[in-house]
Design a protein around this nucleic acid. Sequence first.
RNA 1: GGCGACGUAGCCAAGUGGUAAGGCACGGGUCUGCAAAACCCUGAUCACCGGUUCGAAUCCGGUCGUCGCCUCCA
Length: 478
Amino acid sequence: MNTPNNLHIYNTLTRTKEPFEPIDPDNVRLYVCGVTVYDSSHIGHAMSALVFDMVRRYLGHRGYGVTHVLNFTDVDDKIIDRAHREGVPWQSITQRYIDGYLAEMDALNVMPATVYPHASQEIDEIIGMVERLIDEEIAYESAGDVYFRVLADEDYGKLSRRRVEDQQAGGGERVSSDEQARKQHPMDFALWKAAKPGEPQWESPWGMGRPGWHIECSAMSMKYLGPQIDIHGGGSDLIFPHHENEIAQSESFSGQTPFVRYWMHNGMVQVSNDQGEIEKMSKSLGNYFAVDSFLARYSGDVLRLFVLSTLYRRPTTFSEKVIDDARKGVERFLLALRPAKADASEADEALLELAASVDERFHSAMDDDFNTPVALAALHELARALNGARDRGVGGTEFDAAQTTLQSLLAVLGFALDRPATQGSDSAEAAPFIDLLVALRGQLRADKQWALADQLRDRLAELGVTLEDGAEGTTWTI
RNA sequence: GGCGACGUAGCCAAGUGGUAAGGCACGGGUCUGCAAAACCCUGAUCACCGGUUCGAAUCCGGUCGUCGCCUCCA
Protein backbone atom coordinates (compact mmCIF):
# COMPACT_ATOMS: atom_id res chain seq x y z
CA MET A 1 0.00 0.00 0.00
CA ASN A 2 2.98 2.26 0.49
CA THR A 3 3.37 3.18 -3.12
CA PRO A 4 5.07 6.43 -4.09
CA ASN A 5 2.92 9.08 -2.58
CA ASN A 6 0.93 11.66 -4.38
CA LEU A 7 -0.57 13.19 -1.27
CA HIS A 8 -1.63 16.80 -1.62
CA ILE A 9 -2.72 18.99 1.25
CA TYR A 10 -4.64 22.25 1.10
CA ASN A 11 -2.57 24.88 2.82
CA THR A 12 -4.53 27.74 4.37
CA LEU A 13 -1.50 29.98 4.03
CA THR A 14 -1.36 29.71 0.24
CA ARG A 15 -5.01 28.75 -0.34
CA THR A 16 -3.92 25.98 -2.66
CA LYS A 17 -3.38 22.25 -2.59
CA GLU A 18 0.32 21.50 -2.40
CA PRO A 19 2.28 18.25 -2.69
CA PHE A 20 3.06 16.97 0.76
CA GLU A 21 6.80 17.00 1.31
CA PRO A 22 7.61 16.66 4.99
CA ILE A 23 10.89 17.75 6.52
CA ASP A 24 11.53 14.16 7.58
CA PRO A 25 9.22 11.42 6.27
CA ASP A 26 10.05 9.27 9.26
CA ASN A 27 9.03 12.00 11.63
CA VAL A 28 6.18 14.14 10.37
CA ARG A 29 5.72 16.94 12.86
CA LEU A 30 2.05 17.46 13.55
CA TYR A 31 0.77 20.00 16.05
CA VAL A 32 -2.95 20.34 16.69
CA CYS A 33 -4.56 22.98 18.87
CA GLY A 34 -6.44 21.20 21.59
CA VAL A 35 -9.12 22.53 23.86
CA THR A 36 -9.33 25.04 26.66
CA VAL A 37 -10.30 22.87 29.58
CA TYR A 38 -12.97 24.87 31.36
CA ASP A 39 -15.97 22.72 30.45
CA SER A 40 -16.90 19.45 28.78
CA SER A 41 -16.42 19.04 25.05
CA HIS A 42 -19.08 19.26 22.37
CA ILE A 43 -19.50 17.89 18.87
CA GLY A 44 -17.45 20.71 17.40
CA HIS A 45 -14.42 19.80 19.47
CA ALA A 46 -14.95 16.18 18.52
CA MET A 47 -15.06 17.07 14.85
CA SER A 48 -11.65 18.66 15.04
CA ALA A 49 -10.25 15.69 16.91
CA LEU A 50 -11.76 13.22 14.45
CA VAL A 51 -10.52 15.13 11.42
CA PHE A 52 -6.95 15.23 12.61
CA ASP A 53 -7.14 11.65 13.82
CA MET A 54 -8.09 10.70 10.26
CA VAL A 55 -5.19 12.79 8.91
CA ARG A 56 -2.76 11.21 11.31
CA ARG A 57 -3.95 7.69 10.56
CA TYR A 58 -3.73 8.24 6.83
CA LEU A 59 -0.20 9.61 7.10
CA GLY A 60 0.71 6.49 9.04
CA HIS A 61 -1.02 4.33 6.47
CA ARG A 62 1.02 6.00 3.75
CA GLY A 63 4.19 5.03 5.53
CA TYR A 64 5.08 8.21 7.38
CA GLY A 65 6.15 8.28 10.99
CA VAL A 66 4.20 10.91 12.89
CA THR A 67 4.87 12.81 16.07
CA HIS A 68 1.58 14.29 17.16
CA VAL A 69 1.46 17.05 19.75
CA LEU A 70 -1.89 18.09 21.21
CA ASN A 71 -1.93 20.84 23.78
CA PHE A 72 -4.28 21.64 26.61
CA THR A 73 -4.85 25.30 27.39
CA ASP A 74 -5.13 25.21 31.15
CA VAL A 75 -4.48 28.87 31.93
CA ASP A 76 -7.43 30.99 30.91
CA ASP A 77 -10.03 33.46 32.18
CA LYS A 78 -12.89 31.01 31.93
CA ILE A 79 -11.04 28.41 33.94
CA ILE A 80 -10.33 30.99 36.60
CA ASP A 81 -13.97 32.10 36.65
CA ARG A 82 -15.19 28.58 37.01
CA ALA A 83 -12.78 27.80 39.82
CA HIS A 84 -13.98 30.88 41.68
CA ARG A 85 -17.60 29.95 41.17
CA GLU A 86 -17.10 26.43 42.40
CA GLY A 87 -14.71 27.51 45.13
CA VAL A 88 -12.03 25.04 44.10
CA PRO A 89 -8.44 25.39 42.90
CA TRP A 90 -8.14 25.97 39.16
CA GLN A 91 -6.14 22.76 38.87
CA SER A 92 -9.13 20.68 39.86
CA ILE A 93 -11.16 22.25 37.08
CA THR A 94 -8.55 21.60 34.43
CA GLN A 95 -7.86 18.07 35.63
CA ARG A 96 -11.54 17.22 35.55
CA TYR A 97 -11.99 18.30 31.95
CA ILE A 98 -8.68 16.91 30.75
CA ASP A 99 -9.67 13.53 32.15
CA GLY A 100 -13.08 13.82 30.54
CA TYR A 101 -11.64 14.83 27.20
CA LEU A 102 -9.19 11.95 27.11
CA ALA A 103 -11.89 9.45 28.05
CA GLU A 104 -14.17 10.77 25.31
CA MET A 105 -11.43 10.67 22.71
CA ASP A 106 -10.78 7.08 23.68
CA ALA A 107 -14.46 6.28 23.25
CA LEU A 108 -14.30 7.92 19.81
CA ASN A 109 -11.37 5.68 18.88
CA VAL A 110 -9.11 8.70 18.48
CA MET A 111 -5.46 7.71 18.68
CA PRO A 112 -3.66 9.22 21.66
CA ALA A 113 -1.25 12.02 20.81
CA THR A 114 2.45 11.49 21.26
CA VAL A 115 2.67 14.35 23.75
CA TYR A 116 0.03 16.35 25.60
CA PRO A 117 1.72 19.52 26.84
CA HIS A 118 -0.08 21.81 29.27
CA ALA A 119 0.42 25.56 29.09
CA SER A 120 0.89 25.74 32.85
CA GLN A 121 3.82 23.34 32.66
CA GLU A 122 5.74 25.22 30.00
CA ILE A 123 6.16 28.55 31.73
CA ASP A 124 9.97 28.58 31.53
CA GLU A 125 9.91 28.12 27.77
CA ILE A 126 7.27 30.79 27.40
CA ILE A 127 9.21 33.29 29.49
CA GLY A 128 12.34 32.51 27.50
CA MET A 129 10.57 33.27 24.26
CA VAL A 130 9.10 36.49 25.55
CA GLU A 131 12.48 37.69 26.84
CA ARG A 132 14.07 37.09 23.49
CA LEU A 133 11.29 38.92 21.67
CA ILE A 134 11.76 41.89 23.98
CA ASP A 135 15.51 41.84 23.37
CA GLU A 136 14.83 41.93 19.66
CA GLU A 137 12.47 44.88 20.23
CA ILE A 138 9.64 42.95 18.67
CA ALA A 139 7.85 42.97 22.00
CA TYR A 140 7.64 45.51 24.78
CA GLU A 141 6.74 45.55 28.44
CA SER A 142 3.98 47.84 29.65
CA ALA A 143 2.85 47.98 33.27
CA GLY A 144 3.65 44.32 33.89
CA ASP A 145 2.12 43.16 30.62
CA VAL A 146 4.16 42.27 27.57
CA TYR A 147 2.84 42.90 24.08
CA PHE A 148 3.88 41.83 20.62
CA ARG A 149 4.57 44.80 18.40
CA VAL A 150 2.55 44.09 15.28
CA LEU A 151 4.14 46.88 13.27
CA ALA A 152 7.55 45.28 13.81
CA ASP A 153 6.46 42.28 11.81
CA GLU A 154 6.29 43.29 8.17
CA ASP A 155 4.32 40.28 6.99
CA TYR A 156 1.85 40.19 9.85
CA GLY A 157 -1.56 39.10 8.56
CA LYS A 158 -0.36 36.76 5.84
CA LEU A 159 -2.32 33.75 7.08
CA SER A 160 -5.68 35.45 7.53
CA ARG A 161 -5.08 37.93 4.73
CA ARG A 162 -5.66 40.93 6.90
CA ARG A 163 -3.75 44.13 6.73
CA VAL A 164 -2.93 46.04 9.85
CA GLU A 165 -4.11 49.28 8.23
CA ASP A 166 -7.55 47.84 7.44
CA GLN A 167 -8.02 46.66 10.96
CA GLN A 168 -7.16 50.07 12.37
CA ALA A 169 -9.96 51.70 10.48
CA GLY A 170 -12.77 49.56 11.84
CA GLY A 171 -11.18 48.68 15.12
CA GLY A 172 -12.58 51.32 17.40
CA GLU A 173 -15.89 49.71 18.22
CA ARG A 174 -14.80 47.50 21.02
CA VAL A 175 -14.66 49.20 24.37
CA SER A 176 -11.23 50.59 24.95
CA SER A 177 -10.20 48.84 28.10
CA ASP A 178 -7.21 49.45 30.30
CA GLU A 179 -5.48 46.88 28.22
CA GLN A 180 -6.01 48.89 25.06
CA ALA A 181 -4.47 51.85 26.81
CA ARG A 182 -1.33 49.89 27.57
CA LYS A 183 -0.82 48.93 23.94
CA GLN A 184 1.16 50.95 21.47
CA HIS A 185 -1.04 49.76 18.63
CA PRO A 186 -4.59 48.36 18.86
CA MET A 187 -3.56 45.19 17.07
CA ASP A 188 -0.72 44.41 19.47
CA PHE A 189 -1.48 41.31 21.47
CA ALA A 190 -0.48 40.06 24.90
CA LEU A 191 2.42 37.67 25.32
CA TRP A 192 2.34 38.00 29.09
CA LYS A 193 -0.30 39.38 31.43
CA ALA A 194 0.38 40.94 34.81
CA ALA A 195 -1.21 38.99 37.66
CA LYS A 196 -4.49 39.95 39.21
CA PRO A 197 -5.38 38.83 42.73
CA GLY A 198 -6.63 35.27 42.96
CA GLU A 199 -5.30 34.22 39.59
CA PRO A 200 -2.74 31.56 38.78
CA GLN A 201 0.57 33.36 38.46
CA TRP A 202 4.24 32.76 38.01
CA GLU A 203 7.37 34.79 38.57
CA SER A 204 8.81 36.53 35.58
CA PRO A 205 11.22 39.34 34.74
CA TRP A 206 8.13 41.58 34.53
CA GLY A 207 6.70 40.60 37.90
CA MET A 208 4.12 38.00 38.77
CA GLY A 209 1.88 37.09 35.87
CA ARG A 210 0.67 34.50 33.40
CA PRO A 211 1.17 33.79 29.72
CA GLY A 212 -1.08 35.14 26.99
CA TRP A 213 -3.00 32.65 24.94
CA HIS A 214 -1.10 32.53 21.68
CA ILE A 215 2.41 32.22 23.04
CA GLU A 216 1.82 28.83 24.63
CA CYS A 217 1.34 27.09 21.30
CA SER A 218 4.46 28.66 19.85
CA ALA A 219 6.49 27.60 22.87
CA MET A 220 5.13 24.08 22.96
CA SER A 221 5.39 23.55 19.22
CA MET A 222 8.98 24.78 19.31
CA LYS A 223 9.90 22.70 22.34
CA TYR A 224 8.49 19.38 21.18
CA LEU A 225 8.77 19.66 17.41
CA GLY A 226 11.45 22.24 16.68
CA PRO A 227 11.40 25.69 15.04
CA GLN A 228 9.78 24.43 11.86
CA ILE A 229 7.02 21.86 11.66
CA ASP A 230 5.10 20.13 8.91
CA ILE A 231 1.45 20.44 9.81
CA HIS A 232 -0.35 22.68 12.25
CA GLY A 233 -4.04 22.00 12.62
CA GLY A 234 -7.08 23.44 14.31
CA GLY A 235 -10.53 24.81 13.73
CA SER A 236 -11.03 27.53 11.13
CA ASP A 237 -12.04 29.88 13.93
CA LEU A 238 -8.42 29.83 15.07
CA ILE A 239 -7.01 31.30 11.87
CA PHE A 240 -7.34 34.76 13.29
CA PRO A 241 -6.06 35.82 15.66
CA HIS A 242 -4.59 32.68 17.19
CA HIS A 243 -2.64 31.15 14.35
CA GLU A 244 -1.78 34.48 12.82
CA ASN A 245 -0.18 35.45 16.09
CA GLU A 246 1.57 32.13 16.44
CA ILE A 247 3.25 32.71 13.12
CA ALA A 248 4.27 36.23 14.09
CA GLN A 249 5.78 35.14 17.40
CA SER A 250 7.44 31.98 16.18
CA GLU A 251 9.02 33.35 13.05
CA SER A 252 10.17 36.47 14.83
CA PHE A 253 11.67 34.32 17.56
CA SER A 254 13.42 31.71 15.46
CA GLY A 255 14.15 33.76 12.38
CA GLN A 256 13.08 30.72 10.40
CA THR A 257 10.32 30.79 7.83
CA PRO A 258 7.95 29.13 7.48
CA PHE A 259 7.12 28.18 11.02
CA VAL A 260 4.56 25.77 9.58
CA ARG A 261 4.70 24.20 6.13
CA TYR A 262 1.04 23.21 5.90
CA TRP A 263 -1.70 24.97 7.82
CA MET A 264 -4.82 22.82 8.00
CA HIS A 265 -8.16 24.06 9.29
CA ASN A 266 -11.36 22.12 9.78
CA GLY A 267 -14.75 23.71 9.17
CA MET A 268 -17.14 24.49 11.98
CA VAL A 269 -20.00 22.32 13.15
CA GLN A 270 -23.16 24.35 12.81
CA VAL A 271 -26.62 23.83 14.16
CA SER A 272 -30.03 25.17 13.30
CA ASN A 273 -31.66 27.30 15.98
CA ASP A 274 -35.33 27.76 16.90
CA GLN A 275 -35.81 30.31 14.13
CA GLY A 276 -34.37 27.92 11.59
CA GLU A 277 -31.22 29.96 11.22
CA ILE A 278 -27.89 28.22 10.94
CA GLU A 279 -25.25 29.14 13.46
CA LYS A 280 -21.97 27.82 14.74
CA MET A 281 -22.15 25.35 17.57
CA SER A 282 -20.56 26.94 20.58
CA LYS A 283 -20.67 27.15 24.31
CA SER A 284 -21.51 30.81 24.34
CA LEU A 285 -24.58 30.38 22.14
CA GLY A 286 -25.80 27.50 24.28
CA ASN A 287 -26.56 25.40 21.20
CA TYR A 288 -24.05 22.67 21.75
CA PHE A 289 -24.43 18.91 21.93
CA ALA A 290 -21.97 17.42 24.39
CA VAL A 291 -19.83 14.49 23.34
CA ASP A 292 -20.75 12.42 26.37
CA SER A 293 -24.47 12.76 25.78
CA PHE A 294 -23.94 11.89 22.13
CA LEU A 295 -22.06 8.76 23.11
CA ALA A 296 -24.87 7.78 25.44
CA ARG A 297 -27.05 7.39 22.36
CA TYR A 298 -24.72 6.46 19.52
CA SER A 299 -21.40 4.79 18.92
CA GLY A 300 -18.26 6.74 18.22
CA ASP A 301 -18.34 5.38 14.68
CA VAL A 302 -21.60 7.23 14.05
CA LEU A 303 -20.01 10.55 14.90
CA ARG A 304 -16.97 9.65 12.84
CA LEU A 305 -19.08 8.83 9.81
CA PHE A 306 -21.02 12.07 10.22
CA VAL A 307 -17.78 14.03 10.29
CA LEU A 308 -16.07 12.19 7.43
CA SER A 309 -19.13 12.41 5.19
CA THR A 310 -18.23 16.03 4.48
CA LEU A 311 -14.93 17.50 3.33
CA TYR A 312 -13.05 18.42 6.47
CA ARG A 313 -12.59 22.03 5.39
CA ARG A 314 -16.27 22.72 4.93
CA PRO A 315 -18.73 23.60 7.64
CA THR A 316 -21.30 20.94 8.41
CA THR A 317 -24.69 21.21 10.04
CA PHE A 318 -25.55 18.90 12.89
CA SER A 319 -29.09 17.55 13.00
CA GLU A 320 -31.04 14.47 14.02
CA LYS A 321 -31.49 13.59 10.37
CA VAL A 322 -27.84 13.58 9.41
CA ILE A 323 -26.91 11.66 12.53
CA ASP A 324 -29.56 9.10 11.72
CA ASP A 325 -28.12 8.82 8.21
CA ALA A 326 -24.70 8.22 9.72
CA ARG A 327 -26.13 5.63 12.09
CA LYS A 328 -27.59 3.73 9.16
CA GLY A 329 -24.36 4.04 7.25
CA VAL A 330 -22.34 2.47 10.04
CA GLU A 331 -24.91 -0.29 10.31
CA ARG A 332 -24.62 -0.90 6.59
CA PHE A 333 -20.85 -1.30 6.73
CA LEU A 334 -21.18 -3.73 9.60
CA LEU A 335 -23.74 -5.75 7.67
CA ALA A 336 -21.45 -5.89 4.67
CA LEU A 337 -18.79 -7.44 6.89
CA ARG A 338 -21.06 -10.29 7.95
CA PRO A 339 -19.79 -13.71 6.91
CA ALA A 340 -20.87 -15.46 3.74
CA LYS A 341 -23.64 -18.01 3.89
CA ALA A 342 -22.58 -21.22 5.56
CA ASP A 343 -23.03 -23.27 2.41
CA ALA A 344 -21.63 -20.62 0.09
CA SER A 345 -18.81 -21.56 -2.18
CA GLU A 346 -19.43 -19.86 -5.48
CA ALA A 347 -16.44 -17.88 -6.70
CA ASP A 348 -16.66 -14.35 -8.02
CA GLU A 349 -13.70 -12.86 -9.83
CA ALA A 350 -15.55 -9.64 -10.45
CA LEU A 351 -15.69 -9.03 -6.72
CA LEU A 352 -11.91 -9.08 -6.54
CA GLU A 353 -11.63 -6.69 -9.44
CA LEU A 354 -14.06 -4.33 -7.78
CA ALA A 355 -12.15 -4.52 -4.51
CA ALA A 356 -8.96 -3.56 -6.33
CA SER A 357 -10.73 -0.67 -8.04
CA VAL A 358 -12.21 0.53 -4.76
CA ASP A 359 -8.82 0.35 -3.10
CA GLU A 360 -7.33 2.46 -5.87
CA ARG A 361 -10.12 5.03 -5.78
CA PHE A 362 -9.97 5.20 -2.01
CA HIS A 363 -6.32 6.12 -2.09
CA SER A 364 -6.55 8.64 -4.87
CA ALA A 365 -9.42 10.35 -3.07
CA MET A 366 -7.55 10.44 0.21
CA ASP A 367 -4.40 11.63 -1.54
CA ASP A 368 -6.42 14.56 -2.81
CA ASP A 369 -6.45 16.54 0.43
CA PHE A 370 -8.20 13.80 2.38
CA ASN A 371 -11.37 13.64 0.31
CA THR A 372 -13.21 11.34 2.69
CA PRO A 373 -16.65 11.70 1.04
CA VAL A 374 -15.30 10.25 -2.19
CA ALA A 375 -13.31 7.61 -0.32
CA LEU A 376 -16.48 6.60 1.52
CA ALA A 377 -18.47 6.50 -1.70
CA ALA A 378 -16.03 3.88 -3.00
CA LEU A 379 -16.42 1.89 0.20
CA HIS A 380 -20.20 2.03 -0.14
CA GLU A 381 -19.91 0.48 -3.58
CA LEU A 382 -17.85 -2.33 -2.18
CA ALA A 383 -20.33 -2.87 0.65
CA ARG A 384 -23.18 -3.12 -1.83
CA ALA A 385 -21.26 -5.58 -3.98
CA LEU A 386 -20.45 -7.73 -0.96
CA ASN A 387 -24.08 -7.87 0.12
CA GLY A 388 -25.18 -8.75 -3.37
CA ALA A 389 -22.54 -11.45 -3.63
CA ARG A 390 -23.56 -12.91 -0.30
CA ASP A 391 -27.17 -13.05 -1.44
CA ARG A 392 -26.09 -14.94 -4.54
CA GLY A 393 -24.28 -17.52 -2.47
CA VAL A 394 -20.76 -16.28 -3.14
CA GLY A 395 -18.13 -17.27 -0.60
CA GLY A 396 -14.55 -18.42 -0.39
CA THR A 397 -11.31 -16.59 -0.88
CA GLU A 398 -12.53 -13.84 -3.19
CA PHE A 399 -15.33 -12.96 -0.84
CA ASP A 400 -13.01 -12.97 2.16
CA ALA A 401 -10.41 -10.88 0.36
CA ALA A 402 -12.97 -8.27 -0.64
CA GLN A 403 -14.22 -8.10 2.92
CA THR A 404 -10.69 -7.68 4.17
CA THR A 405 -10.25 -4.74 1.81
CA LEU A 406 -13.39 -3.08 3.13
CA GLN A 407 -12.49 -3.74 6.72
CA SER A 408 -8.93 -2.47 6.44
CA LEU A 409 -9.87 0.68 4.55
CA LEU A 410 -12.52 1.50 7.14
CA ALA A 411 -9.85 1.00 9.76
CA VAL A 412 -7.60 3.46 7.94
CA LEU A 413 -10.33 6.04 8.47
CA GLY A 414 -10.40 5.12 12.13
CA PHE A 415 -13.65 3.22 12.37
CA ALA A 416 -13.67 0.90 15.37
CA LEU A 417 -16.35 -1.34 13.83
CA ASP A 418 -17.56 -2.59 17.18
CA ARG A 419 -20.41 -4.91 16.51
CA PRO A 420 -23.58 -4.66 18.49
CA ALA A 421 -24.06 -7.47 20.99
CA THR A 422 -25.40 -10.65 19.37
CA GLN A 423 -25.90 -14.24 20.33
CA GLY A 424 -22.74 -15.81 21.61
CA SER A 425 -21.57 -12.43 22.83
CA ASP A 426 -20.50 -12.22 26.41
CA SER A 427 -20.93 -8.47 26.47
CA ALA A 428 -24.70 -8.81 26.81
CA GLU A 429 -25.68 -10.25 30.13
CA ALA A 430 -29.14 -10.79 28.76
CA ALA A 431 -27.86 -13.06 25.99
CA PRO A 432 -28.93 -16.41 27.49
CA PHE A 433 -32.40 -15.08 28.16
CA ILE A 434 -32.78 -13.61 24.70
CA ASP A 435 -31.55 -16.86 23.19
CA LEU A 436 -34.22 -18.64 25.21
CA LEU A 437 -36.98 -16.34 23.96
CA VAL A 438 -35.79 -16.64 20.40
CA ALA A 439 -35.80 -20.43 20.68
CA LEU A 440 -39.33 -20.35 22.08
CA ARG A 441 -40.45 -18.10 19.27
CA GLY A 442 -38.83 -20.51 16.81
CA GLN A 443 -41.05 -23.23 18.21
CA LEU A 444 -44.11 -20.99 17.82
CA ARG A 445 -43.17 -20.30 14.21
CA ALA A 446 -42.70 -23.97 13.55
CA ASP A 447 -46.23 -24.46 14.85
CA LYS A 448 -47.41 -21.56 12.67
CA GLN A 449 -48.54 -19.59 15.71
CA TRP A 450 -47.81 -16.37 13.82
CA ALA A 451 -49.69 -13.98 16.06
CA LEU A 452 -47.83 -15.05 19.18
CA ALA A 453 -44.50 -15.17 17.37
CA ASP A 454 -44.98 -11.66 16.00
CA GLN A 455 -46.04 -10.36 19.38
CA LEU A 456 -42.87 -11.76 20.91
CA ARG A 457 -40.80 -10.08 18.21
CA ASP A 458 -42.57 -6.76 18.71
CA ARG A 459 -42.17 -6.84 22.47
CA LEU A 460 -38.48 -7.60 22.16
CA ALA A 461 -38.16 -4.73 19.70
CA GLU A 462 -39.66 -2.41 22.29
CA LEU A 463 -36.92 -3.55 24.64
CA GLY A 464 -34.29 -2.76 22.03
CA VAL A 465 -33.70 -6.26 20.71
CA THR A 466 -34.06 -6.61 16.96
CA LEU A 467 -34.86 -10.02 15.47
CA GLU A 468 -34.26 -11.03 11.89
CA ASP A 469 -35.48 -14.31 10.47
CA GLY A 470 -33.17 -15.68 7.83
CA ALA A 471 -32.81 -18.87 5.89
CA GLU A 472 -30.36 -20.14 8.49
CA GLY A 473 -32.37 -19.24 11.55
CA THR A 474 -33.11 -16.15 13.55
CA THR A 475 -30.43 -13.63 14.50
CA TRP A 476 -30.73 -10.86 17.03
CA THR A 477 -28.92 -7.65 17.92
CA ILE A 478 -29.35 -5.41 20.89
C1' G B 1 -17.35 48.17 7.15
C1' G B 2 -12.86 44.60 6.16
C1' C B 3 -11.28 39.37 5.15
C1' G B 4 -12.90 34.44 3.72
C1' A B 5 -16.12 30.32 2.43
C1' C B 6 -20.48 28.46 0.43
C1' G B 7 -25.41 28.08 -2.57
C1' U B 8 -25.74 20.81 -6.75
C1' A B 9 -32.17 16.13 -6.74
C1' G B 10 -37.17 15.92 -0.74
C1' C B 11 -32.60 15.76 2.70
C1' C B 12 -27.06 15.00 3.29
C1' A B 13 -22.95 15.32 -0.07
C1' A B 14 -18.74 14.75 -4.13
C1' G B 15 -17.43 16.80 -8.77
C1' U B 16 -14.42 22.78 -10.46
C1' G B 17 -13.97 23.13 -18.68
C1' G B 18 -16.40 17.91 -22.18
C1' U B 19 -23.26 16.55 -21.29
C1' A B 20 -23.87 15.27 -12.84
C1' A B 21 -20.06 9.94 -7.46
C1' G B 22 -22.10 8.08 -3.00
C1' G B 23 -25.65 7.93 1.14
C1' C B 24 -30.67 8.74 3.39
C1' A B 25 -35.89 9.24 2.27
C1' C B 26 -39.98 8.12 -1.44
C1' G B 27 -42.12 4.73 -5.18
C1' G B 28 -42.01 -0.16 -7.93
C1' G B 29 -39.97 -5.18 -7.79
C1' U B 30 -37.30 -9.97 -5.89
C1' C B 31 -36.93 -12.69 -1.29
C1' U B 32 -40.04 -13.63 3.37
C1' G B 33 -45.80 -16.84 6.86
C1' C B 34 -45.58 -11.50 7.93
C1' A B 35 -41.68 -8.21 9.04
C1' A B 36 -36.66 -6.74 8.98
C1' A B 37 -32.26 -6.87 6.28
C1' A B 38 -30.31 -7.50 1.53
C1' C B 39 -30.45 -7.00 -3.78
C1' C B 40 -32.59 -4.81 -8.57
C1' C B 41 -35.17 -0.58 -10.95
C1' U B 42 -36.68 4.63 -10.51
C1' G B 43 -35.04 10.90 -9.59
C1' A B 44 -31.43 16.70 -10.55
C1' U B 45 -28.82 20.52 -15.89
C1' C B 46 -26.21 22.27 -10.85
C1' A B 47 -29.42 30.11 -6.71
C1' C B 48 -30.34 33.99 -10.62
C1' C B 49 -28.60 37.30 -14.79
C1' G B 50 -24.90 38.36 -18.38
C1' G B 51 -20.13 37.12 -20.63
C1' U B 52 -15.73 33.94 -22.40
C1' U B 53 -15.47 29.11 -25.09
C1' C B 54 -16.64 24.39 -30.23
C1' G B 55 -18.34 23.15 -25.25
C1' A B 56 -19.45 25.57 -18.26
C1' A B 57 -22.32 23.17 -12.49
C1' U B 58 -17.03 23.94 -13.32
C1' C B 59 -13.70 30.35 -15.91
C1' C B 60 -14.97 35.99 -15.66
C1' G B 61 -18.50 40.03 -14.10
C1' G B 62 -22.95 41.25 -11.54
C1' U B 63 -27.37 40.14 -8.36
C1' C B 64 -29.70 37.59 -4.37
C1' G B 65 -29.08 34.33 -0.20
C1' U B 66 -26.42 31.59 3.79
C1' C B 67 -22.30 30.91 7.07
C1' G B 68 -17.48 31.90 9.50
C1' C B 69 -13.59 35.35 11.26
C1' C B 70 -12.49 40.52 12.63
C1' U B 71 -13.75 39.56 20.86
C1' C B 72 -12.87 33.89 24.09
C1' C B 73 -13.65 29.79 20.64
C1' A B 74 -12.33 23.16 17.57
